[in-house]
């Protein structure tokens, strides 16, 4: 939806994911959108250079969030909120309600 504005569908996906879940890592985002990991990594890197997202490490994983110090954060969030309104309720639910508890070991 914001591809014409942002110039990349994967940039939109990254922003939407981080907005909906507060944080995320590249493989998780790529897996969710069933897209190429390197493309997601590239967008995260560009957004970090632009100060729109920031990262911290947890073990070997680099975890990204929207940068609370970005001066246009409120405006970007308002835009992403509006984009979410155009998603179906199912899509919105799976994006905003990730399964946190791991599936029990041995469960089919």
């Amino acid at each position: 939806m914001l591809e014409p504005l942002l110039g990349s569908i994967n940039r939109e996906r990254v922003l939407l994911f981080l907005y909906s879940r507060d944080e995320g890592y590249a493989r998780e985002i790529a897996r969710y959108f069933k897209t190429d990991l390197s493309q997601i990594q590239k967008q995260l890197e560009r957004l970090e250079i632009g100060n729109i997202v920031f990262s911290k490490t947890s073990g070997k994983t680099r975890i990204y969030s929207l940068n609370p110090r970005y001066p246009f954060l409120n405006e970007v969030q308002a835009l992403l909120e509006k984009v979410l309104l155009f998603y179906s309720s199912d899509e919105r639910y799976t994006l905003t309600h990730p399964r946190k508890r791991p599936r029990r070991k041995g469960k089919p």
């Binding site: 250079i49 632009g50 100060n51 110090r69 001066p71 954060l73 409120n74």
Partner: peptide, 11 residues
């Protein structure tokens, strides 16, 4: 670093 020059949300 990418601009704008801001402290918090203010220029």
């Amino acid at each position: 670093p990418a601009g704008p020059l801001a402290i918090g949300k203010e220029p």
